[in-house]
């Protein structure tokens, strides 16, 4: 039996909205540790790793490990039926073929349940080693989203270059070119607006903007985003979910031939 109750049910809706454009079908892995997902996009260029710890839920019970295969798009459609302030409870039997989402309004006057059929999904799992990255940038997530969107009006790829002076996002295209440089700065009163650059050595990598724009769908989940890069390694774009876990996106770089 799997049962998980989340007072802030809207959190799961935001999570689904940040994954469904990249991945169609995926397995949610339920265990005593929590509720997790690892999935690659169909081109095997990017990967989502999402984890919500069991202690972040208001109630969490998972008697045995369970893999729930779902269409992320269909699950997102169901979660759209949940009120913004509703309490969400997910339930699944160990050998069942469905998962139930129960929505309770804050005043308990409306209770609804939606059942989603589960699917058998063969998913290829990748082992991602712990890595000490050459450079890590923490910046406002809305600023990162804006930069990726703005640069997409000019080009398809972005060169992200971290130096001690800041992080520079550059693109070129048929109509011209664009650069945005963000400098590190702290703001004691508004920590969500600070930019922190932790650099062991300068690093510059090129990525397809299309994927970064998909990752930015997670912006409503966190005020800050953390971008980790090392030479010739996939970038990690991580959004921390307060008191619960994170959603991290991995994207393979583009390499000059």
């Amino acid at each position: 039996m799997f049962e998980a109750r989340l007072t802030q049910g809207v959190l799961l809706r935001k999570l689904l909205d940040s994954m469904k454009d990249l991945v169609q079908d995926a397995n949610f892995d339920c265990s005593s540790t929590g509720f997790a997902l690892q999935a690659m996009d169909s081109s095997h260029v990017s990967l989502i790793h999402m984890q919500l710890r069991s202690d972040g839920f208001d109630h969490f019970r998972c008697d045995r490990n369970l893999s729930m295969g779902v269409s992320l798009n269909n699950m997102a459609k169901i979660l759209k039926c949940m009120g913004n302030d509703d309490v969400l409870t997910m339930k699944a039997e160990d050998q069942g073929d469905s998962v139930t989402f129960m929505f309770e309004s804050a005043n308990q006057e409306r209770i609804s349940d939606f059942e989603l059929k589960l699917m058998d999904i063969d998913s290829e799992q990748l082992g991602i080693p712990d890595t000490d990255y050459s450079a890590t940038v923490k910046m406002p997530s809305a600023e990162f989203a804006r930069i990726c969107k703005d640069l997409s009006t000019i080009g398809d790829t972005v060169l992200i270059a971290v130096t001690k002076d800041g992080v520079r996002f550059s693109t070129t295209g048929d109509i011209g070119s664009a650069n945005v440089t963000v400098r590190s700065h702290s703001n004691v009163d508004k920590p969500e607006e600070q930019v922190v650059i932790d650099m062991q050595e300068p690093v510059a990598l090129t990525f397809a903007l299309r994927y970064l724009n998909s990752f930015a769908k997670a912006t409503p989940l966190s005020n800050q985003v953390m971008i980790s890069m090392s030479k010739e390694l996939p970038v990690v774009v991580q959004y921390r979910i307060e008191d619960m876990g994170h959603i991290s996106y991995y994207l393979a770089p583009k390499i000059e031939d």
Binding site: M40, V45, S46, Q125, A208, P234
Partner: peptide, 14 residues
């Protein structure tokens, strides 16, 4: 610009 790498070039399957 450049050739798009796949993730399998960097991470092993489990």
């Amino acid at each position: 610009g450049g050739r798009q790498m796949g993730l399998a070039s960097f991470y092993r399957g489990t």
